[in-house]
């Protein structure tokens, strides 16, 4: 596999966007956006060298296996793929990862997690969706629970979260539930994003734009 990236700074991937604009719209600095471009190049050329992240490349990065099927990884990919064209472009990658930045607004993290769990995109998390997600998690883990136990866990969680008792969890109920259980969105923060320039320092020698406060 050849190097597609650092030696040709003027050749950008399809969907490339100006780092200064992306930095103005996200919690990232210009330097961090440029470092993310290094990561993006690596991910987007891991299987198909076209500078776009395909689902198989996303799965390969997450699981070290391009054929790994995972409900949640699929949902994350679909949310990152804002244009719904089957690939993640650089701008989509940066804007979506911005939600996972430690400095991103808590309400953005809560809203993203809601959309993630609203599998059928109805604007509500329904009981069947919750059970489907629990079953998917059990399938990927070594944890074995009886169907009665799964039903009990889903019932209890739904009873606690669905405070309006209308059989579905809306965004306000989700927000209230997360405020009672903040650990639920722990995975919505990636501390790595604060150190991204250390993880991908090679852009520094060729950076074109100075950061400004």
């Amino acid at each position: 596999m050849g190097c597609f990236c650092s030696t040709s700074k003027n050749v950008k991937t399809p969907g490339y966007e100006d780092p200064t604009i992306l930095a103005s719209e996200t919690p990232f600095t210009v330097s961090e956006v440029e470092a993310l471009y290094e990561l993006f190049l690596k991910l987007s050329n891991s299987i198909i060298e076209d500078g776009l992240i395909h689902k198989e490349e996303f799965q390969l990065a997450l699981f070290r296996n391009e054929n790994e099927k995972n409900l949640f990884a699929d949902r994350i990919f679909d949310l990152f793929d804002v244009k719904r064209n089957g690939v993640i472009e650089f701008g989509e990658f940066v804007r979506s990862l911005g939600v996972f930045h430690p400095n991103a607004a808590l309400e953005d993290k809560i809203a993203f997690a809601f959309r993630l769990y609203d599998l059928r995109q109805t604007g509500y998390i329904e009981r069947e969706e919750l059970k489907e997600m629990v079953l998917a998690l059990l399938h990927e883990s070594d944890l074995v629970l009886s169907d009665d136990m799964i039903e009990a866990i889903v019932d209890k969680t739904f009873k606690d979260a669905d405070t309006k008792d209308d059989g579905r969890i809306d965004q306000d109920e989700w927000k209230a539930f997360v405020s009672q259980h903040p650990s639920l969105i722990k995975n919505m923060t990636l501390p790595y994003l604060k150190d991204i320039t250390l993880a991908f320092p090679s852009f520094i020698a060729r950076t074109e734009v100075e950061d400004s406060e």
Binding site: L39, N70, V134, A136, E140, L145, A161, H181, K186, Y192
Partner: peptide, 26 residues
């Protein structure tokens, strides 16, 4: 035996598919 107090969303949040830190591993 899992306690019935287990939170379904807590369980779900443990999925490897939601662990994006893997993207940053070299």
């Amino acid at each position: 035996v899992a306690p019935v107090t287990m939170n379904a969303f807590e369980l779900i949040s443990k999925s490897q598919g939601l662990n994006l830190s893997s993207l940053f591993e070299k």
